[in-house]
């Protein structure tokens, strides 16, 4: 049979660059995660907090007199105030548990499966370098993470503005959008790098979950213990989750504790080091992955 009859023909359009092609990696990865029913259950559970605040804003704006008290009772401040409270930051920090569990679940699906079932060679054989592959995978992590932190926080911001009488709320508090996006970016960069590295190393769900939770829970306990016994606040830097919060809060313009002002640059340095180590490991793993098998 002639090749023409099989309808094979050369692509005559303009091919886009590999950074754009990496979006296909993101799409395929997200599809793999979204097709699991358990992910939707997790997402639904993770959105309980969002639903609470969503209802809170509605009640707070629609019940004159009582509304403010309700918002105060739940400590949800839509206007960053003199005590430096911010409801959107509070919401994002409360989502920490959801983020941790979701990432523990998603690690093996996002990247572990590619190494376990040798799907990496499939990606790398299609004109994508390891960087493009990592970019595609990181975007998938960022989308998942954003879907339970950044996106709901922005929805709450939009919701409150919609219940006010004009557009001033959005304009006056436009910095909230930048802050939320900045905090989200810090989380996505650090957690994305750590998760991808753990996923590529351990591959299966349970080992990833064990290591992931140990990393965050025990590092928190350890750092606190060492700080107490030595009195040196720098031990707090061992707590990765706290470092993320410390750097993320910089986008909101204030810190939880006075010592955090001093620790923030160190925390940023610690996070940068962690990201570099993880990316370096991933790079080496992808370049030499056949040899490592």
């Amino acid at each position: 049979m002639q090749i023409d009859l099989a309808h094979y023909h050369r692509w005559e359009g303009r091919l886009r660059g590999p950074w754009y092609s990496a979006l296909a990696v993101t799409r395929a990865t997200l599809r793999q995660v979204f097709r699991r029913k358990v992910f939707w259950i997790l997402l639904a559970l993770g959105m309980l907090n969002f639903l609470l605040y969503f209802a809170l804003i509605y009640a707070g704006t629609q019940l004159p007199g009582v509304g403010d008290r309700i918002m105060e009772r739940f400590d949800f401040t839509v206007h960053p105030d003199a005590q430096r409270r911010n409801g959107y930051l509070r919401f994002m920090e409360q989502q920490g548990l959801v983020v941790m569990v979701m990432m523990a679940f998603a690690g093996s699906v996002i990247i572990g499966g590619d190494f376990r079932q040798r799907g990496v060679s499939f990606y790398l054989a299609h004109g994508l370098s390891p960087w493009h592959y990592l970019w595609g995978k990181w975007l998938a992590v960022a989308v998942l993470l954003g879907s339970v932190t950044v996106l709901p926080a922005l929805v709450l911001f939009v919701e409150y503005g919609m219940f006010t009488s004009d557009f001033h709320y959005w304009w006056e508090n436009k910095a909230v959008v930048v802050s939320v996006l900045g905090y989200g970016l810090v989380m996505a960069v650090v957690l994305g790098a750590v998760l991808l590295a753990l996923g590529a190393w351990l591959r299966k769900t349970v080992p990833i979950a064990i290591t992931w939770t140990s990393l965050f829970l025990l590092s928190a306990a350890w750092s606190e213990q060492l700080r107490r016994t030595t009195g040196d606040p720098h031990w707090r830097l061992l707590n990765l989750w706290r470092d993320i919060r410390c750097v993320g809060r910089a986008f909101f313009g204030f810190y939880a504790r006075r010592e955090d002002v001093q620790l923030a640059p160190w925390a940023a340095g610690a996070l940068a080091a962690v990201v570099l180590i993880c990316v370096g490991y991933l790079w080496a793993k992808l370049v030499h992955w056949r040899r490592w098998e």
Partner: peptide, 17 residues
């Protein structure tokens, strides 16, 4: 079908929550 995934969700989320 995916006991490890459900187990992770139970141990880390349901128990904690």
């Amino acid at each position: 079908r995916y006991p490890t995934v459900v187990g992770v969700v139970y141990a880390l989320f349901v128990e904690a929550l």
